[in-house]
Design a binder for these strands. Structure first.
Lengths: 210, 210, 210, 210
DNA sequence: GATGAATGAGCATTCATTCAT
DNA sequence: AATGAATGAATGCTCATTCAT
């Protein structure tokens, strides 16, 4: 019952994707992946030279893309944004890019962000959150003005909101495969965070005014 | 160096809590737990009959409480809520209960929700989400009225919002230990979701009116 | 790219010879041998039914020759050698035969003697040594005369000298490929052992005379 | 059937010594060693953290000693030796030291020199041979004088004689355990090489004189 | 005849669990 | 009650061998 090479490669990737997604990289078993792929354990190594390389094959490309975009956008953040209008454009661009990536590689992103403990990718989620956090912190500082009210509390708040937002996006791509639904849900989640964060900022402004 | 039984039990629980929290159930090592507890590996088994039972001892009580509340509140949901006033009261009650639990047993909850993969608790987070989802769905149905506009899309939306909210709460208790900060962050996150969901509902209403 | 059978067989043998020589039987890899031979791994099994049989094909003939000579010469040893002159002739004959074999099949001999661990040939080196030992023992007994001075010590000495000599010859064919150099080194080594053993025997005679 | 720790450690070391000696480091199996030691495979790792460390425990100390002596004696070689008398003393010292080491740690030496392929010790035998070779080459150069007759042939000869001598010593300690016998055999082997090499040198002189 | 994908037993190593002390 | 040595099944991985093509 010999199979075509590409077919087996697909089977391995699918099985690995499933195992990594469900159990995480460390807990996933090469034997189980082989079993799910319908092949003998040793045969995986004809296609991928090890467990780590199998992970690379799955999330490497997505990681590269993501890292490239983050680098670019981080550089743009350092250039002072003169007008509100620019800021809105920046936000939309970041959102569209990320949402685009999320929709295109949802499972891979999910593993990259949530199931990579113990690999060289384990810091990625944190970096993404720090990036979102940076945007929020900038926003908060603007509100606080020069009145030195920005505090560790604000930092924890920005970190939490960034974290939960990224986590929320991860969840959406984890739980859905239909891109129309994913797009709708991401839009809604961003609506919630936009409105909610606006409210929180308004609240800050109120306190500042006192 | 005979030790009092209760002292050792405490040491084991503390060490296990730490390990489970930091590495998750599967990746935690009984040897390391014993070492951290200052006892021999084999001695754990005098107190707990295995790794799974040790987990039970830690999150079982919290799980029971949580399950009990959820049962109760779910039953209350089935009774039609006559007035808006009641609904507000219900929301506040649920929120206060959950937040109370979260704050009281943050570490245990964190393990229950985020580090229980591969155990019989791995479904709990999902159940909690389903519960929150139910509340949101009821809300959405009310908006849609009898005009049969409630759809699968609304269901996915409720599920997503519930999921990300619970996940967000989990993250807060995962990343912080100071109860004042935890309370602040939970309040802020609920603010965001309240405001945001109100906006989303308003949006639905607008569409319905057309 | 259809190949002639004999051509492939040659390629396999050459590649196997190389691998066995460099890494020893156990550590040699059938994959590597196939690769070096320019054929697919599985194809080796059309020509040789397994790793062990491949070894047989390489060193079997040399082993047979060597064993045949040793049998013959051993039988000759049992016939009492009347005169010194005969003995000298016998020695020279043995030496010439062995050196001839060594030079003709140096690689195969090298594998047979040094790289056959874990196969049915691993005892051969020892047998060859026992043969040389037998010659030396006879010599020693002659020196000791009928005075019953021949002892276990003499046996150990004969065994050691035989062993180190054979080992030395093995090393020469292991480390060199140029037949002129091999011949020179073998001659020199035999010079050393001839002179040295003569000295040892002279020493024995001296002790006997006391 | 719990055993005393030191007893098991001994059993492991003995079994490992046996396996390494018979099959070499690479081909030796931890399972087999455990079996021979009468314990479960995993239990070895309570005593030694891995295969390599098990080897270290066996030959590490011997290696250190040997390396220290070789360093010292190599330094002494670089200092010009004025008189023949000094040279004789030097030879005797080297011989006594090496023979002392050989007799004290015969099995360990045997593994160090003959069964360490694939480990960080695999170069040691070669270094020892190069050391002996250096001594021989010095001797040969002396004979050749300034007449530029020293050649690559002489180098191959020195290398071969050094190699076979060291190999011979290795064999003695591999095949015997009784120190009296070992001493006698080493003395005899050195006699053979001394006499033999003297003969070879005499031969060189003869050729030079022509 | 030849290929190379596939198999499965073997390797070193880890770890929850057991049990003699 | 406590120890920690011992077990054995599981892990990622390699390789001689088989077999569908």
């Amino acid at each position: 019952m010999q199979k075509l090479k590409e077919e087996v490669r697909r089977a391995i990737l699918n099985a690995a994707l499933k195992s990594f997604k469900e159990q995480g990289y460390a807990a996933a078993s090469m034997r189980k992946i082989a079993q799910d792929a319908g092949i003998a354990a040793g045969n995986i190594y004809r296609y991928y030279s090890g467990k780590e390389q199998l992970l690379d094959a799955i999330i490497g490309p997505v990681f590269e893309k993501c890292a490239a975009y983050m680098d670019e956008y981080r550089r743009m953040l350092d250039v002072p944004l003169a007008k509100e209008r620019n800021k809105k454009q920046y936000f939309d661009m970041v959102r569209d890019t990320m949402v685009g990536l999320f929709k295109l590689h949802s499972s891979e992103f999910m593993i990259l962000l949530n199931r990579s403990e113990g690999t060289r990718y384990e810091h990625v989620k944190n970096e993404l959150m720090l990036f979102v956090e940076k945007i929020l912190v900038d926003e908060f500082r603007l509100v606080r003005g020069n009145r030195e009210h920005y505090s560790g509390q604000d930092g924890a708040l920005a970190s939490m909101l960034a974290g939960t937002l990224v986590e929320g996006l991860s969840r959406i791509i984890r739980d859905h495969t239909d891109t129309v639904t994913i797009e709708m849900l991401i839009d809604r989640l961003l609506d919630v965070y936009n409105t909610g964060i606006a409210f929180v900022i308004e609240d800050m402004r109120g306190i500042e005014r006192l």
